[in-house]
Design a protein around this nucleic acid. Structure first.
Lengths: 252, 252
DNA sequence: ACCTGAACACCGTTCAAGT
DNA sequence: ACCTGAACACCGTTCAAGT
């Protein structure tokens, strides 16, 4: 009746489980149960829990590679509409100006931008992935291949190997589509909704600047559709800050 | 004979254990053994393992606060020597030029730079801290206080609340003195020493740009004292990229 | 007030055994 | 070739009991 297990089936069940209930729910016993099998059966297809986690990272990297290849296929169309997009890129003045001045000098930036944002879309589907990737020790081969690709784009754009090397470090985890989120200005314990007047008042006593920032940002908000901390905007702002900063190091 | 336990003694024993054997060795039973006590005794002083980890983060943040206060006390002396320092800052051309053009317009940058580098020194003493901080869910109060401080410096320097907010996001984990290290160009399995000629040749076939970068960086190396991947240089390069990029958004 | 022993539920994993 | 049952070592944690 039921076909035999395989590494692929185990991995995709693991991804599904992590997506649905978080990586904390991913135990050998639970995963086996989801597959209608005993925990020990998994060891026939995988070297153990650690190998399972390596496989998860591998799977996510493969998804990113697919996503990036797709941006490549449609890069011309994307680039043409980038400057006119509403809401996100258009709000980072720095990038806008560069695109206006533009010609084809912005090519390398648009390409990397497209890749990193495509990776981000993958990460949004797998919220457990950043923490997992961040704690893995072994660097998967697929990651080297990806960095090789980024490096190729940088070298071709006219960067020296030294600056390209530093750029890779500066990008941090952005090529994989995420940044470390240490800080959310909404203190833990409060709701997801906007802070109340009283909460801001209480906060103002001890942390006046943070309180003022919260107040100002709520008041300034041009587009009410976007929440208090719209990570997409922040991600793109940081990305453009880095890309535009690096542009100055390019050789012609 | 032996004085009773306390939350402080437990925490400092935990820090010592993590420093010496890594966070993986930090179990309730092991920590208790180090303190000459049974595992269950710890629960009298701490709410549990999770509370212990919260306490560790708290301890590290306190160390950072102390380190930052010290930079404040000697900030004038530091700033005067920053441009002439050998090896690190002087190699990031961008920062050098700004300091030369300088006057006091670089003040906010030097201040934040000093803070973040002081935090980095703390992290180097506690290599387990970045991974721990990155996975904690609750944002400790001390972190809010720290961000309040950074925000104050930014506002005083003339940034709008909106840009200051984005700057906080852009800094990522740099205020805590670390960046996510996903990528070390030395493939896992190779030694810490420089890659051999054959290794580079083999690498060149499949990843030409990475291989060329390794070769170029080794050849170019102006200062043979520094290794292939000197994180200090990379940290400061990225930091200056962000600080100098933000400078353009400052009001007067 | 401070610490302990025994026990529980839950891990990942080994190993010999089934079909 | 593929899966299983029983067992082991190790977690964090509860709870009643000691002093």
């Amino acid at each position: 009746m039921r076909e035999p297990l395989s590494r692929e089936r185990v991995l995709s069940a693991a991804v599904a489980l992590a997506d649905k209930e978080g990586i904390g729910a991913l135990t050998m016993r639970r995963l086996a149960a989801d597959l209608g099998v005993e925990a020990m059966s998994l060891y026939y297809h995988l070297p153990g829990k650690d190998g399972l986690l390596d496989g998860l990272v591998e799977t996510v990297l493969a998804e990113i590679t697919v996503a990036i290849d797709e941006t490549g296929a449609t890069s011309r169309a994307r680039r043409r509409t980038a400057a006119g997009r509403t809401g996100t890129a258009s709000r980072t003045a720095i990038a806008d100006r560069n695109r206006r001045a533009g010609a084809s000098s912005g090519d390398w930036r648009d390409q990397l931008r497209g890749w990193f944002l495509a990776a981000r879309a993958v990460m949004l589907r797998h919220p457990w992935a950043p923490a997992l990737i961040g704690t893995r020790r072994r660097v998967p081969d697929a990651l080297y291949a990806y960095y090789e690709r980024i490096l190729g784009a940088l070298i071709e754009a006219g960067f020296s190997h030294r600056i390209a090397h530093r750029a890779l470090h500066s990008f941090g985890s952005m090529p994989l589509g995420f940044v470390q989120e240490l800080f959310s200005p909404t203190p833990a314990g409060t709701t997801e909704t906007e802070p109340s007047e009283e909460e801001i008042a209480a906060m103002a006593e001890v942390m006046p600047h943070l309180a003022a920032m919260v107040a100002a940002e709520m008041h300034d908000a041009a587009d009410p559709m976007l929440g208090w901390c719209d990570s997409q905007v922040e991600f793109e702002f940081t990305l453009d800050l880095l890309l535009d900063g690096l542009e100055r190091f390019r050789n012609t």
